[in-house]
Design a protein around this nucleic acid. Structure first.
Length: 401
RNA sequence: GCCGGGGUAGGGUAGUGGUCAUCCUGCGGGACUGUGGAUCCCGCGAGCCGGGUUCAAAUCCCGGCCCCGGCCCCA
């Protein structure tokens, strides 16, 4: 029995990686076009970093271990907290706002399921220095932009504010409050009656469907402003105060994006205003979001919107190793413009052509005795024609293919 | 952690309590010694793991592991 993969992890084939790199590439180019810069933090951190603010749920499912010196370490279950650590220790004297992004793997020990893995990828952004409605608008517009550029259609943006419920429950014990919030998140409205709280008020908020005035009263001006910005941007969204983010550090306006083409794990993006600064003794205004990269890829697959990217590919076949040096020269020229591989299995030309054909290679370059007269044979496998090209015209010839 | 459905070569599959475990595809080679996709031939490659029942288990039973989906939770 061969050694198998660890549960909840995946191997990615060349085909998988093409899809992943494509989706990542779209995210990267959108993020960068908004002026965000890429960073990366370590795969593991001291456990301490995540103890205070990530919340029980995240820690319960974390990979926690000791290193050889007995220090408690954790594989990052999310990236926002490490980014803030990085910020506090090294980036604080940069001009604000800081716009940062990352695309990297995270780890949680949970039961694997459709769209849920123990090693998964997050593509996230953070704005440090402000949590203004303008900043939140930028985030949501940008997230929407990414999905639009990927041609994903079946998504829904929901906007809420965790402060509203937290304020309403401010005099409730911490533990009870998180229980109540969990009921709200799950839609277990009936259970709320069991608690000593303003049931009617909470119910009216989580089932909110009123107009601007009421909304302003409940959520404040910022929420209204954000909604105006999103309207101007043509971003469609729903207001939903029952959104309770799983991470405890969220502290204001939050949003989630779901794709209803997905199974049980529908959420493809989540974010909002958070307060992590107090962890380091500062008041840092910040907000951000993260895409679940795997789920976005899954969405793109389900909606069948991944483009077929075709690129010209070459292969060089060498008849005699005495022309190896010539072949290298030719390869150097071809590789300035195209992908070109070389035959290295000592195959006969027939087998080599079979290989090239089954790999979908477009042009087959043959280096044989004609090289002595200064000619290179180029065979167009798709059109089944071949030509002998003088070596001095070779570069010009392939450039114009 | 819980619930449901699964697990036979790299991928897809067939079958039976008892010959050498099918077939397709794939991969390597040959027929064809410098020209592909066809054909033919040869070769490579498998019953998740452990235990039980049995003269005999890939097949039946139990446990575990893993995969798929759902709950919980999250991305």
């Amino acid at each position: 029995m061969a050694i198998s993969r660890v549960k909840g992890t995946r191997d990615f084939s060349p085909e998988d990686m093409k899809k992943r790199r494509y989706v990542e590439g779209v995210m990267r180019s959108v993020f960068e076009s908004y002026g965000y810069e890429e960073i990366l933090t370590p795969t593991f951190e001291y456990l301490e970093l995540f103890l205070k603010k990530s919340g029980e749920e995240v820690l319960k499912h974390a990979y926690i271990f000791k290193d050889k010196s007995g220090k408690d370490l954790i594989l990052r279950p999310e990236v926002t907290t490490p980014v803030i650590r990085f910020y506090v220790s090294n980036l604080r004297n940069r001009p604000h706002p800081l716009r940062l992004y990352y695309i990297t793997n995270c780890f949680r020990y949970e039961e694997p399921q459709a769209g849920r893995y123990r090693e998964f990828w997050q593509a996230g952004v953070e704005i440090i220095g402000t949590n203004s409605p303008e900043a939140m608008a930028e985030l949501i517009i940008m997230a929407d932009d990414v999905l639009k550029r990927l041609n994903i259609k079946h998504y829904e943006i929901r906007i809420g504010n965790v402060e509203v419920l937290k304020n309403l429950l401010s005099d409730v014990d911490d533990r009870i409050r998180s229980k109540i919030l969990r009921h709200i998140d799950k839609g277990e409205i009936e259970k709320l009656k069991e608690y000593d709280i303003n049931y009617e008020k909470i119910l009216s908020i989580i089932t909110f469907s009123g107009g601007r005035n009421e909304l302003e009263e409940i959520a404040g001006k910022d929420m209204l402003l954000l909604m105006d910005y999103l309207d101007d941007a043509g971003v469609r969204y729903k207001v939903d105060f029952s959104i309770v983010r799983g991470l405890d550090y969220y502290s204001g306006i939050v949003f989630e994006i779901h794709n209803n083409k997905l199974g049980a794990q529908k959420q493809i993006c989540g974010g909002g205003v958070y307060s992590l600064g107090e962890l380091f003794g500062f008041d840092i205004k910040a907000c951000g979001f993260a895409f679940g990269l795997d789920r976005v890829i899954l969405s793109a697959e389900r909606e069948n919107v991944l483009p077929e990217v075709s690129e010209r590919r070459f292969m060089l076949f060498l008849f005699d190793k005495k022309y190896y040096k010539k072949a290298l020269e030719i390869l150097r020229i071809v590789r300035k413009y195209y992908k070109c591989e070389m035959e290295i299995m000592r195959k006969k030309i027939k087998k080599s052509l079979e290989y090239a054909n089954s790999k979908g290679i477009d042009f087959f370059i043959i280096v044989g005795e004609e090289i002595e007269k200064g000619y290179i044979t180029i065979k167009d496998l798709k059109r089944n024609v071949q030509e002998e090209v003088p070596i001095e015209n070779f570069e010009e010839y392939i450039k114009n293919l």
